[in-house]
Computed example of a mutant assay.
Amino acid sequence: MTKFVAIKIHYDHRKSLMPYLKYSKVPTPEEYQEYLDLFHDEGIGGAGFHECLNFSIREYENTKIYLPPTCIPSSKYTDDEFVFFSFTYKDDKEMPSSIIGIHAATRFKTIGKESILRNDIESIEGAEPFHYCAESPSELTTLITPTIKYDYKDGIFTPKYSRWGYGLRYINEKHATNIITAALEEAKKRLPSASISEEIIIQREIIVLESIQKRYGLFSKKTSLNIKKSLPNDDSVPDREIGFLGEKIVYEEEVNYAIKHKIPVSDIEWISQSDPQSPYDIKTIRIINNEKIEHFIEVKSSRVLDESNIYLSSRQVKFFQENEPSSTFKFVTFTSKNTVNSIRELNFNQLSNEFELVPIKFKLKHK
């Protein structure tokens, strides 16, 4: 049985992340300390920040979710399927009283309030380890951009409450339908004025919202039932570990470049952590003729012994052809011990001169 649940989490206040990239990256020690200081000095937030990775979406993997202890459902329901809608607190400093994201088809990996240690991320010096307690399919997980404002007294997105407090609240299909409908409407309104990165994220969000809508029958009278889109699929599964490591290394290089040239770190966006199907992994900035120019990087990681295991999607080919002056591929080669052997950067023309694009899939069409 599916249960629709509204939970409260603290907003990701980090200035280094654009709104559509929140909850996607491990905080730096400085960011983590800022979060704790905000809690201790002003009573905003909490004494930890496990939620910071709730929307770190990786290709071919479920999204790991941390739920505050007050938001864990009764143990008698832990075998059920959940759709969690994340709400912020009304006294949140940056994004008060907002619905910020959805995890559908969620399954618990623990019983009761125990949580599981995350071993897929680096620990932060001086901070307690990060944990999670549930997982949702990445193709049914999305932030809501822009966020939806709510009032728990009006009965639109939750039952009418005189007071909510801190715990979870069960909502019904009507409330879930209203959230999905509002999120879709706002996302579609935002598309025409979106930046390149934001447009890619919003397009994915729309596909995910429509998939959730279809899975649970959450259609309003305004909603069309003709849903044909789906997330892109690729049968070739690259090495996940070095794929993430390669992107992390390049992202950190770009952050250092930004700091050196006094560019706001928030201008460096690790897009693939929110949309693994994006045609590029990182949006960065290059200084050209004393001007700040947007630049897009796709990271291709491989091992020294297997440099042939590199793939481009047709979507990537199209994007890098159309944006050739402002985009490059970075090829990160690792040794067998996951240390970097070399990093090369090529634009699409250079790549085409050096490599042959070999098609590995064909669409069947009647003659």
Rank of each mutant, 00 (worst) to 15 (best):
V317I: 15
M1L: 07
E34N: 09
A105E: 06
T110D: 12
N54P: 03
S193Q: 08
F49A: 07
V304M: 04
L21D: 00
L225G: 12
K365I: 12
P68W: 05
P232F: 09
K283P: 08
K90L: 06
T145E: 12
L305I: 07
K113E: 09
F244R: 03
I7K: 01
I242F: 02
S197T: 14
N323H: 14
I285W: 07
L357I: 14
G101L: 02
T142L: 01
G46H: 09
M18V: 15
E324R: 07
I44P: 03
Y161E: 07
K64E: 06
L21M: 07
E135M: 00
E241I: 14
E34P: 01
F320P: 00
I297R: 01
S75N: 13
G167H: 02
E254A: 13
L225N: 11
V265C: 13
F296V: 06
Q321C: 14
E322S: 10
V304K: 12
I207Q: 13
K260E: 13
I288R: 03
P238S: 02
T145D: 15
I65S: 11
P359C: 08
A176T: 06
V237H: 06
P232W: 04
F84H: 05
V208H: 03
H40A: 08
S56K: 09
Y35V: 04
I242H: 00
G217F: 02
T328M: 04
H10F: 15
S24T: 00
K109G: 03
F334N: 03
K361I: 15
I293E: 06
P232L: 12
S224P: 14
N119M: 09
R169H: 14
P29W: 00
G46P: 08
F244C: 03
I206F: 04
F49E: 03
K15F: 11
R286D: 04
E185M: 04
E61V: 05
V5L: 12
K229W: 01
A134K: 04
L67M: 07
S220G: 11
I310F: 01
Q203W: 08
E199L: 15
I156H: 00
L305F: 11
D281K: 01
L357F: 10
T110N: 08
F296L: 11
Y132K: 06
I201T: 04
L53T: 07
R169W: 08
Q350D: 12
E114V: 06
D235L: 14
I271M: 05
K15C: 15
I297P: 05
R240H: 14
S236F: 12
E34R: 04
R118H: 10
Y132A: 07
D92A: 09
V26W: 00
E254T: 14
